[in-house]
Simulated assay, not measured.
Amino acid sequence: MASKPMADAASWYCATILLALILFASIRENNSMPDNDPVRGAKHFVISRPCDEIYVVGEGETLHTISDKCSDPFIVERNPHIHDPDDVFPGLVIKITPSRP
């Protein structure tokens, strides 16, 4: 009967090793993607062209940081769909009109 607990331990060990290998492979694959790969999503697009007329808010951004980055101090006035300037979330689409060229 001692072989049953040993077999259970061996299968848990194998499952843990397999899971670790899968996670390692996926992390390595994500890190090997080139920086100009469009598959990374809209966040990469926003970083490469931050002040297009149509701007998609990214993770961790506020209207203040976007205003500073894009030189548009009148974001709230030009976007009537923003009712609360503190309620800005990733994916929100806003219009940007830079005040300087």
Rank of each mutant, 00 (worst) to 15 (best):
G91Y: 04
I66C: 04
F74H: 09
I75R: 03
V88G: 08
D68K: 15
F74L: 11
F74K: 11
P85F: 04
V56W: 01
I66E: 03
R78K: 15
L92A: 13
H64F: 15
N79S: 06
E61I: 05
Y55K: 12
L92T: 06
N79D: 07
L92C: 04
P90D: 14
H81G: 06
S71V: 03
D68P: 00
E77L: 11
I94T: 01
D86S: 14
I82V: 11
G91H: 02
V88Q: 11
D68H: 08
V88M: 14
G58I: 09
V56Q: 06
G58R: 09
K95N: 12
H81Y: 00
V76G: 00
K69F: 04
D84H: 09
V56K: 00
D68L: 15
I75D: 04
L92K: 11
H83D: 13
P90I: 03
E77M: 01
V56T: 12
P80Y: 05
V56I: 13
H64K: 15
N79G: 08
V76I: 14
D68A: 14
P80E: 09
V93E: 10
D86G: 09
E77A: 11
D87A: 15
E61M: 08
F89H: 12
F74Q: 09
V57F: 02
I94P: 00
S71F: 03
T65K: 10
H83M: 11
V57H: 03
G60E: 11
V56L: 06
T62W: 04
G58C: 03
T65S: 15
V93R: 08
N79Q: 10
V76F: 02
K69V: 02
D72Q: 02
L92E: 12
D86A: 11
R78M: 10
Y55T: 00
E61N: 07
H81W: 10
H64D: 14
P80C: 09
V76Q: 01
G60L: 11
D87Q: 15
T65L: 14
P73D: 01
H64C: 13
P80S: 10
V57D: 02
P73R: 06
K95H: 11
P73C: 07
H83S: 14
V56F: 08
D87L: 13
E77Y: 05
I82S: 07
P85K: 03
V93H: 03
H81R: 04
G91L: 09
S71L: 10
K69A: 11
G60D: 11
T65F: 04
T62E: 05
D86W: 13
I82Y: 06
D86Q: 15
V88C: 05
H64A: 13
S71I: 07
D72I: 00
I66S: 00
R78H: 15
H64M: 15
D84Q: 07
L63Y: 07
F89M: 10
E61F: 03
E77G: 00
I82C: 10
K95D: 12
I75L: 15
V93D: 00
